[in-house]
Nucleic acid binder design. Structure first.
Lengths: 227, 227, 227, 227
DNA sequence: AGTTAAACGAGACGGTACGTCATGTCTTATT
DNA sequence: AATAAGACATGACGTACCGTCTCGTTTAACT
């Protein structure tokens, strides 16, 4: 009897990972898991999420729309949030690779732009649902962090470390705190203020972050001109 | 048929405000709204929220625990989130008044400490539930922002404006962006990273915020001793 | 919280009986039980039983057909067999009163005719379902015996006692055994042999019962003209 | 695609019959039917029937307990009732042979005793389940009658015919009716009255059956000493 | 004092979804 | 070819809540 715990990173993936260890063959005894069903389920939830928040979608409805038995869903996913996450993961555009422009400020800005542009897209609206779900289901939270947030944080971390090495960012800062300072303002605006996060605001953020809020710390080094 | 819209700021409050305009008298014809019931309902949800997230609490359960008819709840609140918010509002400790220490940095730090300390407290855990609810119910979101977030933001805003006047913060920055930069990192850490936010981290944040990430922008002006 | 045990003779009846004791008023606190729903449920199962055996009817289907919530059924009846029994009871034609023809043999014959005629009717087909259910659910068995079988047995008992008094049946026989001998053959034919039980067979049964199987016990006393 | 109709007398038997025609060798192309599986299935259902009625046993459970694929059961039996009947048939003690005591009354009594003693035994409780099943599944009914009831009826018939020849039972009676009168009262008591059927009651039945209910039809011919 | 109109507790109701279980079919790998 | 293992669509299970709707009772304010 399989357990959800063992498959919480869910579905097909689990088998593929196993496969990569034991090589190619499926190895099971009984009937193989149906790819069509999985596909149908993930498509169904994507469509449904276009119309309403995850909270208002029932597993019953997903099954109905996908032409699939409820039990099949319960078997492979612990809750609808995980189904949504799987569906979301498939759609996830590849991350913007870190270009090394020589300027950490520019690199940060580019990463934030790409993230928050995605956030504003239809698929991206899901992010809010996921973050809401994180507040309720700790296990989901950790999965989501691992799957979605960590990779992004990693990108920023690379830029950060590089900037420190180059002397663009002073050393000795608590890295976790700094990374919170980079992503935090954007999330705050979208989740809590629920205001749009346009390009200009991102620019301002990064700039202010680098140069600090202090009034003209030294000479004509005014941070503005951000042209 | 009364409408929730007219009472979305809920319960007793509505009547009191009305009263303050039309003077004292209750004015109704029939039986008065029962204070015991309201009290019982709010107490019940508080108790229930100690054990489980709002999502797992049903109106049925609240009514049962409060010894109250379900209809009474439906009559005065549009959803359980509003009940929770009312209950939460009653418990809400008064805000830390803004002390003017002369240093905006210190003032900010103090405000953030008090907010995030509260966040860590038992009642404060509710904040996560509310923020989750915000992502799903726009009307609730706006109510919650009005009731809880705005007053806090206002405090920070006052400090900010004063600091600009005094020349501690350079003018010309987009104020909304800056306020996001002040609260954002803390929320990010708690909601998304779900890591504790201890005093030291707050100090680091505010400090880095003021002095910027840049490496030794000018002369010996090393930004604090955070070496 | 009411219990099924307290209402196993089910539904409306329970209240009426109570009413007959405490006089008229319904006395409940909340909303009254809906007569339309009960009516709809009983009608629905009757209709369904025309098409298929009780076993193949689901509570879901009854509810659907009756336009009623499943919970309403579960609330008032412990299982679908009880619903069927209630529906059946309503349809139950009044019993054939015992006519005193002076001949116990004739009285018996008349009672058996009326019973087995009913058995052959559309409603009567249900009897087989009920007897099947009796073999599985002991509580239902006792209810069905009380409601349906006992009244019939009582009729026969009266005839029997009268016949003994009159000297038409010899005294000293175990009455229960004799009553089994009166009903048993008919049930056996219908339930187990599953052959039709026509009038002539009933006549033969009663006659043979009275006169015994022995060959011409005495003089020309040939047992009727059953040549 | 094999059909159940062709194997409704089920399981092993089917093969044996085939074998008896095509001689000894299994003759099939692929793998032989597994005797272990059949054995395991029949044992499993027997065990399960000790705990609960047939209705509450699922094919799934039988397969699980027998360590057998569900499909194997579906392949060889049309429904669980047939499985149960097969299992029951194996256990079935041989019938009590008809001893010719010279007295039809005594012979009847002996046969009835043996039947109803079996009925009271653990395996015999199954009879009730089977008779319930008969009321719902006509095909099963006919199979069960053929397999179980007919042989018993045949025994009684032999006694009956012999008694008529010998002049112990008067001729001209409808034999089917009389056989119903012999078995009917016992079944009635067990299935419908659900009262125990002890030896004495059987004696009384047979006696009353022979001598009739009439009061002292002639001279001192009192029907046994059943005073 | 009598009338009227809310507000209330209780709770029944038609629904919808829950998460589980069994059905009977089908597929895969093994024997 | 027959199995065991087991995935699958289907659909019923019995429970829990939803939000609405009577009920009968209680409590003011207005006759």
């Amino acid at each position: 009897m399989q357990e959800h715990v063992a498959q919480h990173d869910v579905g097909r993936e689990a088998r593929q990972r196993t496969a990569s260890v034991e090589c190619v063959e499926p190895k099971h005894r009984g009937r193989q898991r149906s790819e069509e069903s999985e596909e149908a389920i993930l498509s169904a939830i994507i469509q449904l999420l276009r119309d309403k928040p995850l909270r208002d979608i029932s597993i019953e409805e997903i099954a109905r729309k996908a032409g699939v038995g409820k039990a099949t869903i319960y078997k492979w996913w612990p809750s609808k949030a995980y189904v949504a996450l799987d569906a979301f993961s498939r759609k996830l555009g590849q991350m913007v690779p870190i270009r090394d422009t020589g300027s950490a400020e520019r690199d940060f800005t580019e990463q934030l732009h790409s993230l928050f542009t995605f956030f504003g897209s239809p698929e991206g609206k899901l992010l809010r649902q996921f973050i809401a779900e994180m507040q309720v289901d700790a296990e989901f939270a950790s999965l989501f962090r691992e799957r979605f947030l960590k990779p992004r944080r990693e990108l920023i971390r690379v830029i950060y470390d590089r900037a420190v090495e180059r002397g663009q960012i002073r050393p000795g800062l608590d890295r976790d705190v700094v990374l919170d300072m980079i992503y935090g303002p954007g999330f705050h605006r979208m989740l809590i203020r629920q205001a749009p996060l346009e390009r200009k605001a991102v620019d301002t953020m990064v700039s202010a972050l680098f140069h600090g809020l202090r009034n003209a710390p030294t000479r004509g080094n005014r941070p503005r001109r951000r042209s």
